[in-house]
């Protein structure tokens, strides 16, 4: 198989984000008081991993020149929103308003202003904001109910699928941005596997959803291929499959078999998204151009 990246790019764009996320989650949980660490560490670790990879690979300038180059800047804001949203003093309405306000402001800059945008920009703004807010509130419920490495592993799988979709959309650069998130979530998975203190990832919902949805929007709006919008929408929805895995026949079992059953539905959703993308935009055998 043709690997379009150099080892240096894989190291900077996947390995370093994983190490940064792992080290930060671990250390912040140990250094900060437990209530503060619970809120701050996961979102800081995830966003720092992405930003480290982005800057090391010089994927965009510090001063943004076009819509997608604002993504790392808005990840900083998403981190703060994630921290605030994990406060136990907030109720569901507070979180809804916080997510809506933060997302509504961010998408105004992140969604391009091209006249030929399809769907039109107004629909894109409303649709993307609704998707991010709805998914962030749902992800939070998953984070509160699922402890341990299962959820970060599903997030890793989702980010990895997102990175593959971004690459297949026609831009290796966007694919590299996607791989930084995959690296960061792999770091969180390892931390959750080896350290009991790193298992609660409250606060991570908003930054992860924000990254997944906005990176998919960037991939879709900049693509010159034929991949349908459904693929881009399905990817961030994949972890919701865990709601189905928590009960019924898929919830039982332990060890590798148990985890395999639990990740089955999210995995199928990712596979459906990628399968649709490759169906409409098949590999031609000339990718190694």
């Amino acid at each position: 198989m043709h690997v379009p990246f150099t080892w240096e790019e894989i190291g900077y764009g996947f390995g370093i984000p994983a190490v940064v996320a792992l080290a930060l989650l671990w250390n912040l949980r140990w250094m900060l008081p437990s209530t503060v660490g619970r809120r701050y560490a996961p979102s800081v670790a995830f966003s720092a991993g992405i930003i480290a990879g982005y800057w090391l690979l010089k994927l965009g300038p510090l001063q943004p020149e076009t819509h997608w180059q604002w993504l790392p800047h808005f990840m900083l804001i998403a981190t703060v929103v994630g921290m605030i949203s994990a406060s136990e003093d907030l109720n569901a309405l507070d979180r809804f308003l916080l997510f809506t306000l933060a997302t509504g402001a961010a998408v105004l800059i992140l969604v391009p202003t091209w006249g030929d945008l399809s769907p039109p920009r107004q629909q894109y703004l409303i649709g993307l904001t609704s998707l991010i807010v709805g998914l962030a509130l749902s992800y939070r419920q998953l984070l509160l109910r699922i402890d341990g490495p299962l959820l970060p592993f599903v997030l890793f799988m989702t980010c990895l699928s997102g990175a593959i979709l971004l690459m297949h959309s026609g831009s290796l650069l966007f694919g590299q941005i996607g791989f930084t998130a995959a690296g960061a979530t792999l770091g969180l998975t390892i931390a959750a596997r080896v350290d009991k203190n790193s298992r609660s990832l409250d606060g991570l919902a908003y930054p992860v959803v924000f990254f997944l949805c906005t990176s998919m929007m960037i991939g879709h709006t900049n693509s010159f291929g034929k991949i349908p919008i459904n693929s881009y929408v399905l990817i961030p929805c994949a972890p919701l499959g865990l709601f189905l895995s928590m009960n019924g026949p898929l919830s039982g079992g332990k060890g590798v078999k148990g985890i395999s059953l639990q990740v089955l539905i999210p995995l199928l959703i990712c596979a459906a998204a990628l399968g649709t993308a490759f169906w409409f935009e098949p590999l031609t055998g000339t990718e190694a151009y």
Binding site: E65, W68, G170, L172, L173, N222, F224, T284, E287, Y289
Partner: peptide, 19 residues
């Protein structure tokens, strides 16, 4: 003459034709 390559060249990786 290669639609995949055309799409890649148009992307922000190379000519960034949108921008």
């Amino acid at each position: 003459g290669n639609s995949k390559l055309d799409a890649h060249l148009k992307s922000p990786d190379f000519f960034s034709v949108r921008q």
